[in-house]
Amino acid sequence: MLKISHFSKSYDGKKKACDDVSLTIEAGEIYGFIGHNGAGKTTLLKSIAGILDFEDGEIEVDGHSIKKDPLAAKRVLAYIPDNPDVYEPLTGMQYLNFVSDIFGIPAADRKPRIERYAAMFEILGVLNDPIATYSHGMKQKLVIISALVHEPKVFILDEPFVGLDPKAAFQLKEIFRDLCAKGALIFFSTHILEVAEKLCTKIAIIRRGQIVASGPTQEITKDGSLEEVFLELIEK
């Protein structure tokens, strides 16, 4: 479970990028996070991943506070940023072994997982090449595989579909469903409202750092489309 309670974050000590955000995401849920540019999505996702410090509130990942016990929280969490900046001098395989070693995944366990996902995303043949030679999409796929290799319970993604080809985007959605069926939870931001509407069991809409709507997708959209609801909410 991911529990965000009264979370607030300010970069300059004056204006709040996120203001009193509270959300609870249960195991098995695919939770979409929607908002305009600069609304505070990435700030919240980075804070959940333990990358950003924050002033107020609490974030619990599978019962572990990201502030008080960050290592325990990070062991069950995977984070994928909006821009896949990775160690370019390393090969894809070296990067995956690096992440696996940090999570303490034995070689026998990581092998089938890496092979499965790398084959699925069609980068198995280039894993021994330096990451510097990868395209943006290939780097994105590598980061996704590195996030999946330790079978996370909490999967945090920032704009995961940007840069992926249609086939890879479809497969990522299948992976989401598969992970959720196994008891993991997915929390991701997106600007693609159609994806959010079809894929997510729940949705939260953030505007100027505050959650303006959250709940089951069908309750949010009611009889209209998510696009209509979103535009109506952010223009208020």
Binding site: N97, R110, N128
Partner: peptide, 12 residues
């Protein structure tokens, strides 16, 4: 890039 054709190594 230098393409390496070696088998993938899974060392922990």
């Amino acid at each position: 890039g230098t393409r390496r054709r070696k088998a993938l190594e899974y060392r922990s």
